[in-house]
Design a binder for these strands. Structure first.
Lengths: 212, 212
DNA sequence: GACAATGCTTGACAATTGTCAAACATTTTT
DNA sequence: AAAAATGTTTGACAATTGTCAAGCATTGTC
């Protein structure tokens, strides 16, 4: 009997322990979310913890309660960012019944992404560049890169499938291409080039059928 | 006669003036060159003027004599960087007499670039990312991007020409593709992935003939 | 309701930053 | 060679940075 009580208490402790941790992680994500706002606005180089705190409902000390240091915070931001964008096109891929529908759905989402999430994407390119200098970011960045590659591949192979074909290039090549195109379009877009979005769409519309 | 003397003096003044300016610009480039070293090592975010000065034969004050501010220095670095890399493959393009020769020359140069100039290239990607946040860098970055696009295009169209063909895609698409591939390979290379270089070469070797 | 644990704020710290001005050195001009 | 212009060094400045510890508030536990 004593044993049962002991193990029951242990379970309770474990449960509360898990709850604590969950709460802790939830707050971490909240803080990371807030940090992403400022990072997207200013970029990695110009973002300080105090600036992050000021643009949030928290004070700068909290960040050191939840993160080992600044790098830890940024890493958490990067990881969190991943989850937000990796499934962006999956809805379109899943619901499209024809090549045309998939193409239009993809293009629409692409345009929306470029227009409304330009800040998050420039941050992504910024952080990916930082990974070229700092080991600490590399693991997460490479992982995201891979996820994005898979995302593009899912669209492309589905598009090919709807035409009874197979993509003519590898997932890596396809991702490199789209990544390059998007990066270029983003720079144009942020330079207030009104043609950035339509040009990207036109390029993709022409390109995708020749590859897949 | 008085007029002739006056105009002669004016010419002399102009000449010395030009000499001064030339000397001034030469020093500017020296300083920019030195700055590029540190920038390539640390990246934009972690590079201070003092750090640049310490890794050079100059003191930190000089930089403010030759540059309006830090941004001005970085811009000068970016511009200067451009000249150094935009003609990298032109020798190969000009001398190659066959598709095979051009391919092998290009691949060799590509491998050398990735291996020996990784630091400069990660800086390029870093600064291009900064241009997404700072207007000041945009003009130069867009110009370099265009120059690199042209560079790739010269190779590709020559390669196609040697096979009596024409490139199947636009210059923009081709650049996006190679830029994406190189960026990815660079990250792998800097992560001590020994396969980075051979994989990039293999990819390009397979890809180029299908496009051009 | 006392107590402890957790969460959060505040202020201080040492270090670093860009900038600038005054002093110094060197070169050029007269 | 004196004087002026140019180039360079040095040190100081105010602001900002990441970090941390002491204190305050809130929550949960017994």
């Amino acid at each position: 009997m004593a044993q049962q009580v002991a193990s029951a208490r242990k379970r309770v402790l474990d449960a509360t322990e898990a709850l604590k941790e969950e709460k802790f992680n939830a707050r971490r994500l909240e803080l990371a979310e807030a940090a992403l706002e400022t990072l997207g606005e200013l970029g990695y180089a110009r973002t300080s913890l105090r600036e992050i705190a000021q643009n949030s409902e928290f004070t700068h000390g909290v960040f050191h309660y939840y993160f080992r240091d600044k790098t830890d915070l940024i890493c958490c931001c990067v990881s969190h960012y991943k989850a937000k964008c990796v499934t962006r096109y999956d809805q379109v891929t899943a619901s499209a019944q024809s090549r045309e529908e998939l193409m239009e759905g993809f293009l629409a989402k692409l345009a929306e992404t470029l227009r409304k999430e330009a800040r998050m994407h420039r941050l992504w390119y910024d952080l990916r560049a930082q990974a070229l200098f700092e080991d600490a970011f590399r693991k997460d960045v490479i992982e995201i890169d891979k996820s994005l590659e898979n995302m593009i591949w899912r669209i492309a192979s589905r598009y090919a499938e709807l035409g009874g074909k197979r993509p003519a290039v590898s997932a890596g090549v396809l991702y490199a291409l789209f990544d390059g195109l998007f990066q270029n379009a983003l720079l144009k877009f942020l330079s207030n080039d009104d043609d950035a979005v339509p040009e990207l769409l036109e390029e993709v519309r022409r390109l995708l059928p020749t590859i897949c």
